[in-house]
Nucleic acid binder design. Sequence first.
DNA 1: GCGCGCTTTGACACCGGTGTCAATCGGTGT
DNA 2: ACACCGATTGACACCGGTGTCAAAGCGCGC
Lengths: 349, 349
Amino acid sequence: MPPGALQTTRKPTINDVASHAGVSKKTVSRVINGSPGLSAATQEKVEQAIVALGYVPNPQARALALGRNFAIVLLHDNPNAQTVQNFERGVLDAIRESELALMVRPVDRRSPAMLDDIAAFLQQQRPIGAIILPPISERDEIGELCRSMGVRFVRVGSAALDDDDHSVTSTDRIAVTEACRLLIATGHRRIGFVRGPQGFRSAAERELGFHAALEAAGLPVPPDYCAQGDYRFESGRSAGRLLLGLDPRPTAIFASNDEMAAGVMHAAFERNLQIPRDLSLVGFDDSPTATHVWPSLTTVRWPIRDMGVLAAEKLVGNFLPKRRFSSDFVHLPSELIERASIAPPPSET
Amino acid sequence: MPPGALQTTRKPTINDVASHAGVSKKTVSRVINGSPGLSAATQEKVEQAIVALGYVPNPQARALALGRNFAIVLLHDNPNAQTVQNFERGVLDAIRESELALMVRPVDRRSPAMLDDIAAFLQQQRPIGAIILPPISERDEIGELCRSMGVRFVRVGSAALDDDDHSVTSTDRIAVTEACRLLIATGHRRIGFVRGPQGFRSAAERELGFHAALEAAGLPVPPDYCAQGDYRFESGRSAGRLLLGLDPRPTAIFASNDEMAAGVMHAAFERNLQIPRDLSLVGFDDSPTATHVWPSLTTVRWPIRDMGVLAAEKLVGNFLPKRRFSSDFVHLPSELIERASIAPPPSET
DNA sequence: GCGCGCTTTGACACCGGTGTCAATCGGTGT
DNA sequence: ACACCGATTGACACCGGTGTCAAAGCGCGC
């Protein structure tokens, strides 16, 4: 068999490269992995062979040999598809041109089998690392699980999670404070709040931001001005009905996400209130809904895509050819997006 | 080394099962794969060993031996996150409890490198099959690519794609006709249409449905009553401004998706038109936006999650323990969701 | 009892990488 | 010239499965 023949149809393997370069496969392996202790000449020779043959290592073989898949998993149970997908894009941006793959794993946080499910998945797929999105990122057991299985992980959260090493966060609280400060500056004194569900750190953080702004301005926060929601549209509508039924009713409402803000809008329109004339409104997320509703919604944009990039770089930065963030420890700012849902309060009758 | 010891920490492999059952690893392999020609006794023995040891085959090893990953890919370039995610859920529902994994691969249809990108991915990951979502499902080259790489594929479309073997479709056209018939039945005679982008089969299908309804009712369709959009909000707003600037203007508009319908709403509100009093409106997709806007939008629900299930079953039904659809050839019906955006037309002045 | 063909099973190589450890190489110190 | 040493490199086993093909087991007709 003449050397260099028949390479056309089959994908070249490490053996092809080895014989083409006149070295052993182990040496090729060393070049691929950038192992130390190679002479410049050999390195060069092998690299040329790799280019000449268009060799790409076989991920499956590697996974078997290493007992580790060159992939990262995105674990989430997120009600907001847009958020997940934006994050996913960020992660993909980061790992583009690396040899890493992304697997997405939606889970059900209400299922008692969730942890087993995740464990089985990690056991099966043996990824290098996992990225955990909120709200399940708040469950410490998942981090434990990853640790015990030797899977690196990063938790994404709206607030500083306890473990800085493993977390990527944005500055929700500050952004909420800023948004409420805008309401106050516009003249509002009676500001209502629709809270996210119990047990969600993001919900707590946003509430803290709300209180911080009102306290700083010396405004009272009557308990019944804080309504409980669950981040879904319906709960926003109920909360809105409640808040707008109060006397005196709030002249502005901050809803902890856009979906609930849309619910509040419905509640207002049901009572023939106009926005922003009779009621100012702020949401959170900058979801498509925020631009689609009329009037379009002033909201807080969560830098979710950048967080995806950052999380990936934090998790597997050593495998990435180029990085966008120089440091692993970045707090990404949430940003207030001003649209049409805020106006000065109606003058008192 | 005493047999049966130390199994506790390491995951059992096929060798462990083999020695535990007193057979060769090949025989165990046969049991796992349900290969024919095994005596009932051996089968039984091996199965017991598998259960006893809690053995699960290692997917990486399998992938290497077979040159095929036990995974399916979802290829998409879809502007609508909700749609993709719903579909994804359907696929995951279907492959739950199978040994298959799902990989999601967003691509960029505007990039000239898209095909190379997909080819490289398939080459690398070697999945069993691929599911291709619209709009890229309409590009025949992708199917060709899959075929040439020995990857099974299913194309998802809003209309019958040419190749029934490889496609899962819903009945958009009929649903649109039905929606328009409702408008007509409500009394509308001047109905405008906002089209999806050129080159999208779904856009063409929806337009056909629209024309079918109007022709059946003997209504004229002036060319300027059909505005061009691109499935995005902004284009819907522009189209709305155009249509509502006509004299006489349409009393009802069908927008080819919800996002554009939201844009039309903005155009209407800009002109101080009320919906549905002055203008009736129908969208398509039943996206979250459709419920969030006020008034909530009458729309067509695309059975996307079920299509995910069906696509997966069609693609890899032989690997699935149980199936939800008995046949591979099902046309899933789109469904008209009636909400608050339709009313009789204003009486002529 | 023997040869035959069919069913059932196993030995062994192989998929394409990586880890271990020993062999080889060139240069030093004496 | 020789023993010695660190830097390079390679031979070989191994990761955990599957394919190939031959061997063993078995029932049957003669």
